[in-house]
């Protein structure tokens, strides 16, 4: 099994900590001039998303995690699993559980390319595209001509997501550009 020593740690490296796959966020070298060296390491648990901080002795090793991020096209959900297909032409498909898809489910639109994190070839996390374009399925009627006033309202999108802060001129059937990092309205797509 591959291992990484603290002096090889780099942000983005995938390791196993307490049995969970984690990515290294920060690695700070701590050393008094005449004393042993330590590394203060911040990890993000890839399953829970939580951030862990550990102080390790320099030179200590931890196991590498077989984790990779793959671009995959979202196909459909059967209610239990979310199905994705590789974009490398192999047409290989995988099914992700609700736990793996997490919050991303509200931004998933068929044929959009997402980043799927695989651990030992199982999907453990899904990151939607930063910007998605989704159709409005429900909102209060638009106010004609009101393209300038600052008022906003909520809107429900085709994926079931509800977003706040939509301008009053938006109508059912409009397609909106959404920033999935914040869940906020960016613009009308057309």
């Amino acid at each position: 099994m591959a291992t990484y020593s603290t002096n090889e740690f780099k942000s983005g490296m995938k390791v196993l900590l307490d049995g969970d796959p984690c990515t290294i966020l920060e690695n700070e070298f701590v050393k008094p001039g005449k004393g042993q060296a330590f590394n203060r390491v911040k990890f993000r648990n890839l399953k829970s998303g939580r951030v862990w901080e550990r102080t390790m002795k320099s030179g200590e090793s931890i196991e590498a995690a077989d984790v990779m991020d793959l671009d995959m096209e979202y196909l459909y959900t059967d209610g239990e699993f979310w199905h994705f297909m590789r974009t490398d032409g192999s047409f290989e498909q995988i099914a992700a559980t609700e736990a793996a898809v997490g919050e991303a489910h509200q931004w998933l639109k068929e044929q959009d390319v997402c980043q799927v994190t695989l651990w030992n070839e199982d999907p453990i996390a899904v990151a939607p595209p930063t910007f998605v374009e989704l159709e409005v399925t429900d909102t209060d009627p638009g106010l004609k001509g009101d393209t300038a006033s600052g008022g906003t309202k909520p809107a429900t999108l085709s994926t079931g997501a509800t977003i706040k802060g939509v301008p009053l001129f938006v109508n059912i059937g409009d397609v909106l550009k959404i920033d999935t990092r914040t869940g906020e309205y960016v613009s009308r797509a057309r």
Binding site: V30, K31, P32, G35, Q36, F38, T55, K57
Partner: peptide
């Protein structure tokens, strides 16, 4: 033990 002492000292200095 020395390694615990070094760590406690390093953190105290910070």
């Amino acid at each position: 033990p020395r390694d615990e002492l070094d760590l406690a000292f390093a953190l105290a200095c910070e």
